[in-house]
Amino acid sequence: GSKLPPGWEKRMSRSSGRVYYFNHITNASQWERPSG
């Protein structure tokens, strides 16, 4: 298991139950796992 880039964390969408990734530094969110 590799770590996520700085700022990123795994989140669960309440509406759909899907996992997404959220960056608390930039407030960005995306479905794809961030690389870096």
Score class of each variant (00 low, 15 high):
G17A: 06
P5N: 03
M12D: 05
N23T: 01
R14V: 14
G17Q: 08
Y20Q: 01
S35Q: 12
G17M: 05
W8K: 00
L4D: 08
N27V: 04
P6D: 10
M12S: 09
E32Y: 08
F22N: 01
S35M: 12
R18L: 08
S16G: 08
N23C: 07
P6V: 09
S35E: 12
W8E: 00
W31P: 03
G17H: 07
K3M: 12
N27Y: 12
P34Q: 01
R14M: 15
G1F: 09
S35R: 10
R11D: 02
G17E: 04
R11M: 06
Y20S: 00
V19W: 11
P6N: 07
K3Q: 13
R11I: 06
T26K: 04
P5H: 04
P6H: 09
P5F: 03
Q30A: 03
A28M: 14
Y21N: 00
R14D: 13
Q30M: 05
V19S: 07
M12W: 15
P5Y: 02
G36N: 11
H24G: 06
P5L: 04
I25T: 08
G7F: 07
N27L: 13
W31A: 05
M12H: 12
W31N: 07
Y21R: 00
S15E: 14
S2A: 12
R33Y: 13
Y21V: 00
S35W: 10
W31T: 07
F22Y: 14
G1T: 11
W8I: 00
S35F: 10
S35L: 11
S15P: 13
R33H: 12
R14N: 14
A28S: 12
H24E: 06
P5I: 02
E32Q: 10
K10D: 02
R33E: 10
S15T: 14
Y20W: 07
R14T: 15
F22L: 04
P6T: 08
L4S: 02
H24V: 15
G7Y: 06
M12A: 09
E32M: 09
A28P: 01
W8V: 01
P6G: 07
Y21E: 00
K3I: 12
W31I: 08
R14P: 15
S2Q: 11
R14K: 15
S2E: 14
G1P: 11
S13G: 07
S35P: 10
M12T: 15
N27W: 08
Y21M: 00
Q30G: 02
H24A: 10
G36K: 09
P34T: 01
K10Q: 12
K10W: 07
R11L: 07
S13D: 15
G36M: 11
W8G: 00
G7P: 07
E9H: 09
R18G: 04
Y21F: 06
P34E: 02
R33W: 12
V19R: 04
S29V: 15
V19G: 02
S35A: 11
W8D: 00
S15N: 13
S35N: 11
K3L: 12
Y21T: 00
G36D: 13
R18V: 06
S16Y: 09
R18A: 05
K10Y: 07
R11P: 01
G1W: 05
Q30I: 04
R14G: 14
S35H: 11
S2Y: 13
S2F: 11
E32I: 07
N27P: 00
N27R: 14
M12L: 15
M12F: 15
R14E: 15
Q30N: 02
M12I: 15
S35D: 13
R33I: 12
S29F: 15
H24D: 04
L4T: 02
I25P: 03
I25A: 08
R33V: 12
W31R: 08
A28F: 10
N27I: 04
R33L: 11
R33S: 07
S15L: 12
M12P: 06
K10N: 02
K10C: 09
E9C: 06
Y21A: 00
G36C: 15
F22D: 00
A28D: 06
L4H: 02
G7E: 06
P6F: 14
R11W: 03
S16D: 10
K3N: 14
S35I: 11
H24R: 14
E9D: 03
R18D: 04
R14L: 15
L4N: 02
R33M: 10
G1K: 10
N23K: 01
Q30K: 03
I25M: 10
K3D: 14
T26P: 00
R11N: 02
K3A: 14
E9Q: 08
T26G: 02
R14I: 15
S13T: 11
K10S: 07
W31Y: 09
Y21D: 00
N27H: 14
P34K: 01
P5A: 05
Q30H: 04
W8Q: 00
G1Y: 08
N23W: 01
N23E: 01
R33K: 10
S13M: 10
S2R: 09
S15G: 10
G7M: 05
S29Q: 09
W31F: 10
S29Y: 14
K3E: 14
R18F: 06
W31V: 07
P34G: 01
S13L: 12
V19D: 05
T26I: 04
F22R: 03
Q30P: 00
K3G: 15
S15Y: 13
E9N: 04
H24Q: 09
R11T: 03
E32N: 10
R18I: 06
S15I: 13
K3S: 14
S16A: 07
G17S: 06
G36E: 13
W8S: 00
S2D: 15
H24I: 14
T26V: 03
L4P: 15
G17D: 06
Q30S: 08
I25H: 09
N23V: 01
G1S: 11
R11F: 07
F22H: 07
G36R: 10
W31M: 05
N27D: 04
P34L: 01
R11C: 14
S29K: 13
S15W: 11
Q30V: 05
R14W: 11
S15R: 15
N27Q: 13
K3V: 11
I25W: 08
V19M: 09
W31H: 05
P5T: 02
F22S: 01
F22T: 02
A28N: 09
S16K: 08
V19K: 04
S15C: 14
R18W: 03
R11V: 05
N27T: 06
R33C: 05
N23A: 01
A28T: 14
E32D: 11
P5E: 04
S29A: 13
G36L: 12
G1L: 10
E32P: 07
R18M: 06
T26Y: 06
V19P: 07
W8A: 00
P34M: 01
M12R: 15
I25F: 12
S29P: 02
P5D: 03
K10A: 11
R11S: 03
G36W: 15
S2I: 12
H24K: 13
G1A: 12
A28L: 13
S13W: 09
R11H: 07
Y21K: 01
K10M: 13
I25R: 08
R11A: 03
E32L: 08
N23M: 02
V19F: 11
S29L: 14
S35K: 10
G7R: 03
V19H: 09
F22G: 00
L4G: 03
Q30R: 04
S2V: 11
S16T: 13
Y20R: 01
S2P: 11
T26E: 05
I25D: 09
R18S: 05
Y20M: 01
N27M: 13
S15A: 11
H24P: 08
Q30Y: 05
L4R: 03
